[in-house]
Each structure stands twice: as structure tokens, then as C-alpha cells.
Computed example of a mutant assay.
Amino acid sequence: MEMAQKTKIKWAIEEDENSKYYHGILNKRRNQLAIRGILVEGIWIEDPLSVKGEFFSHFANHFDKPPSYRLHVDMDFPNKLTIEQQSDLETNITREEIKKAVFGLWG
């Protein structure tokens, strides 16, 4: 534990030689991905709160409710689960059943 503390102190004093390089790469990438503004109805908006609000309202409108023109399938499907199959899906599975299923694959 003492050695770990000494290593941390040494690193804090000397720092990692590559940290400046890697921080430079991360900051460059962050700047490249940053959204500086957005064009809304022909007006360029740069205020961060306004940009955030526009993104929020766009996605809120997009995902608010399903569109009315969505396809609706109103028919009976020929392949249905029987009552027994439906009840089998809802029963609890024991550890023994899991072991049998898993180890049965190699046996």
C-alpha cells in the first residue's frame, strides 16, 4: 500500500509524459464534434440554451406520438400459440432444468 502511495505521489509530481499529447487529441476531437449552432427556419442560432431547446423540441415532436399514417394490421395470424404453449412460457424455470439444457448440449 505504501508503494502505491509513493507511485501516485511520483506521478503527481512528474506527471505522465504522454498525458499532454492524449489530452490534446481528446480536446481536438471534442471540438470537432461540438455543435456550434443550428439553422432554424433560415435563422442561425448559436446560443447554447436555444440550440438545446430546438433539439429538444424537434425530438419531442418526432417521438411524441405515433403518426396517424402508420400501418395497422388487423387480421388473424394462422400460426398461434396454443393455451398450453402460452402457459409454458409463463412458468418458472428451475436450476435443474437449466443444467439439463446447458449440459445436455455437450452430452
Rank of each mutant, 00 (worst) to 15 (best):
H72W: 03
D76E: 06
F55Q: 09
T82R: 06
Q86L: 12
A34W: 02
P48N: 04
L39N: 13
K6F: 00
P67S: 14
N92Q: 15
H72G: 07
Y21K: 12
L33W: 01
E84P: 02
N27F: 02
E46W: 03
A101P: 00
R70Y: 03
A101Y: 03
L105G: 00
S50V: 05
N18Q: 06
P48F: 00
T94N: 00
S87N: 15
Q32F: 07
I93N: 02
E15W: 05
V102D: 04
V73P: 00
I25A: 02
E90L: 15
L81S: 05
I9N: 10
K100F: 01
E90Q: 14
M3G: 11
E97L: 03
D74Q: 15
Q5G: 09
K10G: 06
K20S: 12
L39C: 05
R95Y: 10
H62D: 09
P67W: 08
W11T: 03
K10V: 05
I93W: 01
K28R: 14
R95I: 10
E46R: 08
G42V: 03
I35S: 00
S68N: 13
R30N: 07
S87I: 13
E96F: 01
E84H: 05
W11N: 09
Y21I: 13
T7C: 10
R70C: 10
G42S: 07
D16F: 04
R70L: 14
M1V: 11
L71V: 09
E15Y: 02
A101G: 07
I83A: 13
E90H: 11
K20A: 15
D74M: 03
